[in-house]
Amino acid sequence: MEVTLKVFRFNPDVDKKWRYETYKLEADPTDRVLDLLERVKGYTDGSLAFRRSCAHGVCGSDALRINGKNSLACKALVRDYGEKITVEPIMGLKVIKDLIVDMKPFFDNYKKILPFFINDSPLPADGKERRQSIEQRERFDDTTKCILCACCTTSCPSFWASDDYLGPAAMVTAHRFIFDSRDESASERLHILSETSGIARCHTVFNCTMACPREIQITKAIGELKLAMVTGNLE
């Protein structure tokens, strides 16, 4: 089938203003949108810039806005999008070149939430693992899947309004640690979340949940955090 690919273009070395460029190319229904971009780059215009690495949805490099909705270009198949595909950078972050955005605010927000395991208590006497039941492990399984692709955060109206907002990805990480029975810094994280630019800015719009390429129930995770802040229950 012939696909019309409309791509957001902006080259800071040359352009003053962004524009769309249209490419027509032959594609199989099972081709990934990433494959199309690769072909455009290989044969038509080598200056087209986008990030990519693993090409099967586990590294999170190629978060893009495809036909108006955030997705990973390597998990977006042509058959699901039809003959007209519009590819734009994710929203709410500065565009550096073409489809590449400045990820710094995103990672800065991630770092605010203490995104690392904290347990200063002594290890078990035998030096072995800290025990955790299957149910305790299951409790935070969903949020361990996050690959930090930023599909969620850049689909969030609160983040578009201001990039001070921690954003769904940071909260997913907070959830992963707060509900881990081995972690000891739930309280610090809840206090960070309770700041004005924190969880209060979540208005349950569900854009994050629907954009997540890993199908994490992000809004649910955030809901559990909100409730934990009121009830103190971390089970």
């Binding site: 080259n11 070395d13 780059k41 986008f50 550096i96 070149k97």
Partner: peptide, 10 residues
């Protein structure tokens, strides 16, 4: 062909 400096992925 891309002579730019910014993200010259080509």
């Amino acid at each position: 062909n891309d002579s730019g400096k910014t993200f010259n992925t080509e």
